[in-house]
Amino acid sequence: MNMKTLQTGPTISVAHLAKSFGQAQAVHDVSFDVQRGEIFGLLGPNGAGKTTTIRMILDIFKPDRGDISILGGPITDAKKEQIGYLPEERGLYKDLKVEECVLYLAELKGLPRRVARERAMAYFKQLDLIEHRNKKVNDLSKGMQQKVQVITTLIHQPAVVIIDEPFSGLDPVNTRLIQEMLMQERQRGTTIIMSTHQMYQVEEMCDRIVLINKGDSVLYGGVDEIRRRYADNAVRVTVRGELPHIDGVVETERKGNERTLHLPKDMPAQAVLRRLADAPDSTVESFELAIPTLDDIFVRVVSEE
C-alpha cells in the first residue's frame, strides 16, 4: 500500500524479546530498533533465533516476554497489509500460473486486482519474466521462482519489508537486479530488515545491524561504526619489490601479495606509509587501514561467545 503510517521514532522496536518452544529457548533476550527508510541487517549463525524473532515481529508467534512495536504500536490486521515478507522457506502455489499466483497474493495484501495486474506487468518486464507469466510456477527455474517471490513481497509497496536470504538461488546479474530494487525501495522510504549470511551484501547494503547469537543480541549498531570498533591498529599494503623492514611493526600477515602489518597502539599509520615511500627497492601499489570485514567480526564474536 502507498499509505504510510505517520509516526515518529523507530519503525520497528523490539525490546527484550523471549520465546521458548517446550524446553528449547529459541530467543532469550533480543532488543533492537529499526529506523524508517533504513536497511537493517539481522545477522546470526544458524539456529541463533533470527527466524523466530522475525515470526514474532510478524505476529506469527506470540512472544513469551518482551515488547514489539511496529509502525507506531502493536501489529494489527491493517498493518499486516503494509508489510512485505520473504521467508527463508520460499512459498508459491506451484500449480498456479505465475501471474495468477502474484495477483492472488497481492489481493490478500489489499491491492485491487486491476492495480495488482498493472504493477505485476511492470515487475515482469523489469525482471524479464514477461514471457513466463502464463507458465505454471512449477515450470520455472529456481532463480525465476525467486524473482516471482520477490515480486510478491514488494508488489503492494509495503512500508516494511522483511526478507530472509533474498539472494539465494540468484545468479550475479539477478542478484544485482534485486539489490537495485531493494535500494530503490529504501529510497522510497521503505524500512527493510534483511537477514542473510552473505556478509559482503550486508556491508554493501545495510545501514545498521544486530547480531543475534544463542537467542541474545550480542552486537548492535551502524555497520561502519562496528567495523571501526573492531579494528586493530593495522594497515594492509601491497608493494612491488621487497617489503622494507619497518621498526615497531608487531606482526606481519601475508595473503597473496597483500600484507597486513599489525602496529603498536601508539604508532600512527602515516609512519608506515612514510617508511614505505622512502624505501628505494619497493613501490607501494595499495595502502589502507586494515578495518575488519563483517565476516571477520561475525566469526570473532560468535567464536568468543
Binding site: K80, Y85, G91, L92, Y93, L108, K109, T152
Partner: peptide, 13 residues
C-alpha cells in the same frame, strides 16, 4: 508443503 502458509499467514488470520 508449498511453504505458502508462512506468507499467507502474514496477510490473513
Amino acid at each position: 508443503e508449498n511453504r505458502t502458509i508462512e506468507i499467507i499467514i502474514t496477510s490473513v488470520t
